[in-house]
């Protein structure tokens, strides 16, 4: 019997997986957009973005919009690779 591939613990958390799922399907998205789509609190979202950034899964660029600061997040090549591995492991686990 083939052993199950281990699920990446960094991605196997609801909010971080939600952030990565959004970023995998777009070029880039800002903090407010991510907060609206994930329905998370600003503080929680900020912490999870920090963890993903620290792991090198996403890049974060801060700039000043029209009259407010803007934080744009973008998935990195490493993040894309880890996400693909996570989905493959998940399929393995679910036998789909």
């Amino acid at each position: 019997m083939t052993p199950f591939r281990e699920l990446d613990p960094l991605l196997h958390s609801q909010l971080r997986l939600a952030i990565m799922s959004i970023l995998i399907s777009v070029d880039s998205a800002d903090f407010i957009y991510l907060r609206e789509k994930t329905d998370a609190t600003a503080g929680n979202l900020s912490v999870q973005i920090g963890k993903l950034k620290e792991a090198g899964y996403i890049s974060v660029k801060k700039s000043f919009g029209e009259s407010y600061p803007q934080t744009m997040c973008r998935i990195t090549d490493l993040g894309r690779q880890r996400f693909a591995e996570y989905v493959a492991a998940l399929k393995d686990y679910l036998r789909v």
Partner: peptide
């Protein structure tokens, strides 16, 4: 999504992925 370290079942993970992807328009 309040629980910052909430772990999920495989089915929940798939649902999160498909829900989030469908929201990007």
């Amino acid at each position: 999504m309040e629980n910052e370290e909430k772990l999920m079942t495989g089915e929940e993970s798939l649902r999160v992925i498909s829900d989030m992807i469908s929201k990007t328009r």
